[in-house]
């Protein structure tokens, strides 16, 4: 540990715009404000004396911000001398944070880009990425490095946890307006991350095929109306949009599914029996499902199934795939 001075610091001594060691990003936790308000500052922030007399924040930027907000001044701090290197300060900031909490993806991106100024890429991949719980890989490093180049609403959403970094990585090659259109859609309705990935691919496929911008697919009349169906629950609206986009991307499959439902209706399956075609009508593996409570009920069901398999309409249905 480099030699440290302990002293009380006035806010005017701090250069708040010096982000050399800043790796925190995202909303300030409310709990921190309540804790400092209730019991005061338990852990002293770490700063560094600069040549120009001002102080650089090394660790504790959030604590200092909260103190300023609460009017707690002066603040007791540890202060490094000017002789301590930037790399040492940065490492202090990183280790101090990773020891206490999991960094959000934007903070991981900040760590990687800041450390890249001091270490070579193999060391960044082999040493720094595992420290951040990231798989050491060039591809992943490039994705994280690109995260900060995204539009600030997207960066904020990733830092705040409302947008998964996987989606942000996938949005990066798109144009700004398209990225933001996706963000708005994903923030409005409760799609899981895997469904967001599916929608992203589906919308991009439609966009390429039809020669329109992805944002025009997202904001077209039909999708807009589904999004604004305020009487329907959010989950239902999300599902409606997914089905609508799938139908637009795969009209043949959708038409076949509808034809199958009509054929099933015409066959007249006994209540409680459910017939599923092979996935995507590929291959010949059908699925018939029913439930029962008692052996007698099973007997009835099996008789129904036996009668069904003898029906010409049912056999035609299986062949008409």
């Amino acid at each position: 540990m480099p030699e440290t001075d302990f002293r009380s610091v006035q806010f005017e001594e701090v250069d708040w715009s010096d982000t050399t060691c800043l790796i925190t990003y995202g909303p300030h936790p409310e709990k921190l404000l309540h804790a400092i308000d209730a019991v005061g500052l338990l852990q002293w922030p770490l700063l560094q004396q600069r040549e120009d007399g001002l102080l650089r924040i090394v660790c504790g930027s959030r604590r200092l911000t909260v103190c300023r907000k609460l009017g707690i001044e002066p603040v007791p701090c540890q202060v490094f001398s000017t002789s301590v290197s930037h790399l040492t300060c940065l490492r202090m900031a990183i280790y101090d944070n990773v020891a206490q909490r999991v960094l959000n993806p934007v903070e991981k991106s900040l760590v990687l880009t800041k450390m890249a100024e001091y270490v070579d890429r193999p060391q960044l991949i082999e040493d720094v990425m595992p420290l951040l719980d990231l798989e050491p890989s060039v591809t992943l490093l490039q994705r994280y490095e690109g995260l900060q180049e995204l539009d600030s609403p997207i960066v904020d959403a990733v830092a705040g946890g409302s947008l998964h970094e996987r989606i942000a990585f996938a949005l990066r090659p798109l144009r700004g307006k398209d990225r933001l259109a996706f963000l708005k859609l994903f923030e409005q309705l409760p799609f899981s991350v895997s469904v967001q990935e599916e929608l992203l691919e589906t919308i991009m496929d439609i966009s390429r095929r039809d020669g329109v911008a992805p944002r025009d697919v997202i904001n077209d009349k039909e999708i807009r109306e589904l999004r604004q169906e305020n009487k329907r629950p959010l989950r239902q609206r999300a599902q409606d949009i997914r089905i609508c986009l799938q139908a637009r991307r795969s009209p043949r499959l959708t038409a076949r599914k509808q034809r199958f439902l009509e054929e099933i209706r015409q066959v007249g399956l006994p209540p409680g029996l459910r017939l599923e075609p092979p996935p995507h009508f590929e291959g010949s593996r059908w699925r018939l499902e029913f439930t029962f409570h008692q052996p007698d009920e099973l007997t009835v069901r099996l008789r129904q199934v036996a009668r069904l398999t003898g029906q010409p309409a049912f056999r035609r249905l299986l062949k008409s795939k």
Binding site: R249, S250, P251, R252, L253, R256, P279, H280, F281, E282, G283, K321
Partner: peptide, 16 residues
């Protein structure tokens, strides 16, 4: 439009 085949490869829908 493509669908995943039984071998995991993407294919045209079977009717096509």
């Amino acid at each position: 439009e493509f669908v995943p085949g039984l071998d995991g490869k993407m294919r045209y829908f079977r009717d096509l």
